[in-house]
């Protein structure tokens, strides 16, 4: 068992070339509301972090 794992570790059993990548690139799902929420939420969090950061960080251009 350990031997088998070691063999895998030597070369790495998975490579991009060895695998068919079709299913990874195709079959896009419909855009969902959770994604909108995730993307918009992340941007809003960025704006909040930016404002707080600019106020608190002494080297920001506000200072």
């Amino acid at each position: 068992m350990a031997e088998e794992k070691k063999e895998i570790s030597g070369t790495g059993s998975l490579t991009g070339e060895a695998l068919e990548a079709e299913d990874v690139l195709a079959g896009a799902e419909e855009w969902s509301s959770t994604e909108t929420w995730l993307v918009v939420g992340s941007f809003i969090a960025a704006i909040i972090a930016l404002v707080i950061g600019m106020i608190l960080v002494p080297t920001s251009i506000l200072h």
């Binding site: 992340s42 969090a45 960025a46 972090a49 930016l50 950061g53 002494p58």
Partner: peptide, 14 residues
């Protein structure tokens, strides 16, 4: 250290 922290969090979230 401080500026780097703020900049990266903002950057990553964008």
């Amino acid at each position: 250290f401080v500026a780097g922290a703020a900049a990266t969090v903002v950057a990553y979230l964008i």
